[in-house]
Amino acid sequence: MTSLVRPRVDVAAARDLAEALLADLPQRWAHTAGVARRAAELCAAMDAADRDRVVTAAWLHDIGYAEPVRDTGFHPLDGARFLRRSGWTARISALVAHHSGACYVAEVRGLHHELAEFPRELSPVADALTYADQTVGPDGARVDVRARMAEMLARHGAASDNARVHHLRAPDILAAAERVEHRLRLAALAA
């Protein structure tokens, strides 16, 4: 019997899994594919060891929306738990759990203890995943981070959990974006 544990990051397996799980959600699939493309573009500003990790996490970041994965209805947590059960590394699971300021939304949904099953990583990889997610719209097209946040708030509504924590989440997302853009500028100068 082969082990479910994937000791290495596997971009191709992540893409295949996301495609299979999101097949019935074409807009979510378009967004996911766009986020993965964007994450790949950010790799120039990352350590070689982290490049596949961020692209893998990008492919997997929204699998919690898929019906077979859905449990709590909070997609970062549902996706992370599914990945953990499926043998993905703890780090990939945690990156999915905490992408794009999920900790703030988990708090208002009463899921902060459950999300704490996964350690929150503060790193260039976590920044890049958030930046990739927050610079790609629902249709997979590139957008400005502020435009993406405005679109998300309009889509979810003024009374949504996302709107309730926007005053906390937005500064976190904008700070991650600033760090990623700074790293990209440094990488361009070094090239």
Results as ranks from 00 to 15, higher is better:
Arg84Lys: 15
Arg84Cys: 04
Arg84Gln: 12
Arg85Ser: 14
Arg85Met: 05
Ser86Gln: 14
Ser86Glu: 15
Ser86Asp: 13
Gly87Arg: 07
Gly87Pro: 03
Gly87Ser: 12
Trp88Gln: 00
Trp88Glu: 01
Thr89Lys: 00
Ala90Phe: 07
Ala90Met: 06
Ala90Gln: 14
Arg91Ala: 13
Arg91Cys: 06
Arg91Met: 12
Arg91Tyr: 02
Ile92Gln: 02
Ile92Tyr: 02
Ile92Met: 07
Ser93Ala: 15
Ser93Gln: 08
Ala94Arg: 02
Ala94Glu: 02
Ala94Pro: 04
Ala94Thr: 07
Val96His: 03
Val96Tyr: 03
His98Thr: 03
His98Tyr: 06
His98Gly: 07
His98Ile: 05
His99Met: 14
His99Tyr: 07
His99Ile: 05
His99Pro: 01
Ser100Ile: 04
Ser100Gly: 09
Gly101His: 03
Ala102Pro: 05
Ala102Met: 14
Ala102Ser: 15
Cys103Tyr: 01
Tyr104Phe: 15
Tyr104Ile: 04
Tyr104Met: 03
Val105Lys: 01
Ala106Met: 02
Glu107Lys: 08
Glu107Phe: 02
Val108His: 13
Arg109Pro: 03
Arg109Phe: 10
Gly110Leu: 09
Leu111Glu: 04
Leu111Pro: 01
His113Pro: 02
Glu114Asn: 08
Glu114Ser: 09
Glu114His: 11
Ala116Asn: 11
Glu117Asn: 08
Phe118Lys: 03
Pro119Tyr: 04
Arg120Val: 05
Arg120Leu: 15
Glu121Trp: 10
Leu122His: 09
Leu122Asp: 12
Leu122Gly: 05
Pro124Tyr: 04
Pro124Gly: 13
Val125Arg: 00
Val125Ser: 06
Val125Tyr: 00
Val125Ala: 15
Val125Gln: 03
Asp127Thr: 08
Ala128Ile: 02
Ala128Cys: 15
Ala128Met: 08
Ala128Asn: 00
Leu129Ser: 11
Leu129Trp: 03
Thr130Asn: 06
Thr130Phe: 04
Thr130Arg: 02
Thr130Cys: 15
Thr130Leu: 09
Tyr131Lys: 04
Ala132Val: 05
Ala132Leu: 09
Asp133Leu: 11
Asp133Gly: 08
Gln134Leu: 04
Thr135Pro: 00
Thr135Gly: 00
Val136Glu: 01
Gly137Cys: 15
Gly137Glu: 11
Pro138Val: 12
Pro138Asp: 11
Pro138Ile: 08
Pro138Arg: 13
Asp139Lys: 09
Gly140Tyr: 12
Gly140Glu: 11
Ala141Glu: 14
Ala141Phe: 05
Arg142Ala: 14
Arg142Gln: 13
Val143Ala: 13
Asp144Cys: 15
Asp144Met: 10
Asp144Val: 05
Val145Asn: 00
Arg146Thr: 10
Ala147Leu: 13
Ala147Thr: 14
Arg148Gln: 10
Met149Trp: 11
Met149Phe: 09
Met149Asp: 05
Ala150Phe: 07
Ala150Tyr: 11
Glu151Ala: 13
Glu151Pro: 03
Glu151Gln: 11
Met152Ile: 11
Met152Leu: 15
Leu153Thr: 09
Leu153Lys: 09
Ala154Ser: 10
Arg155Asp: 13
His156Ile: 09
His156Met: 14
His156Pro: 01
